[in-house]
């Protein structure tokens, strides 16, 4: 603490190992997923995760636009991740930027390895992710939402894809960073998992970790993903509940 230029760095961990919002080191923020909120889309999902609010809509398989992207042996997966201008404290300039292009690309590639793209040659599967409110971990929330939306759209896939970020905060490995932890922490490690096979389809890192910390982070992330996986499944079951439907799947942190 007290390093040069550090201003108003919040205390991210207290003496009892409680985090800035009172969570333990390995607790998720409250997660709530609603499957199928949109009429127009073929599949959709709304994810409220801590202070994140993310909507995903899926279209396809359908004709590819622009045409030259079409592949004769498989479907192309196109993803557009976008943050609303009002999603962050200071107005975000709307439209594509380097960050959203990168996130769109890694999410599209993550799902391309999970969907049975060979089933639909010469088509496009389009995923739209709109971040309405952001509080760190929106790409993970986007993956979680998109995965439920794809299942809702009836597109064949190997498994649902949960995602979560692990980070290093005040020298400690913690699960599911929130904004302050992301901004002032030492590392951020978002990942997306295919629970059935145990493979990671998205893994990025910002900041620094030791090899040992990385290993522990991956283990912690996988554990977190499995909890999120259950919420995703419950959201889909609720959508087609044979009994009375409930409002949405939830997990208390």
């Amino acid at each position: 603490m007290g390093s040069i230029g550090a201003k108003d760095v919040p205390q991210l961990l207290d003496a009892n190992g409680r985090r800035i919002d009172g969570r333990g080191l390995e607790d998720l923020r409250p997660l709530r997923i609603t499957a199928g909120p949109l009429q127009q889309a073929e599949g959709s999902a709304f994810v409220e995760w801590g202070d994140n609010k993310v909507m995903a809509a899926v279209y396809g398989p359908r004709e590819v636009h622009p045409r030259h992207l079409q592949q004769t042996t498989k479907a192309v997966v196109q993803c557009k991740y976008n943050m609303a201008a009002f999603s962050v404290d200071e107005r975000k300039r709307p439209g594509l930027d380097r960050r959203s292009q990168e996130i769109s690309k890694v999410i599209a590639e993550a799902f391309e390895s999970v969907l049975f793209v060979e089933e639909y040659p010469r088509t496009s599967i389009d995923i739209y992710i709109e971040v309405l409110q952001a509080n760190a971990g929106t790409r993970c929330a986007g993956v979680v939402a998109a995965s439920v939306a794809l299942a809702d759209a009836g597109i064949p896939m190997v498994d649902l894809v949960p995602a979560v970020a692990v980070g290093k905060v005040a020298g400690t490995i913690v699960l599911d960073l929130k904004k302050e932890e992301d901004n002032y922490g030492e590392a951020d490690l978002p990942m997306a998992l295919v629970p059935r096979s145990g493979r990671l389809v998205l893994l990025q890192m910002e900041g620094h970790m030791t090899r040992d910390e990385l290993k522990r982070s991956l283990d912690l992330g996988v554990t977190g993903c499995k909890k999120i996986y259950e919420v995703q499944k419950q959201a889909l079951r609720d959508r087609y509940a044979v009994s009375a439907p409930s409002a949405g799947a939830e997990v208390a942190a």
């Binding site: 073929e42 009836g154 597109i155 059935r196 096979s197």
Partner: peptide, 28 residues
């Protein structure tokens, strides 16, 4: 990985020998 059979879509299980099928609840 393990030779087991898994569902690829959300739907209702409907075995019809010699196949197991899942009748999807949505999709094109």
């Amino acid at each position: 990985d393990d030779g087991k059979i898994y569902a690829s879509v959300m739907g209702l299980l409907s075995p019809r020998p010699p196949f197991v099928r899942v009748i999807p609840l949505s999709g094109r």
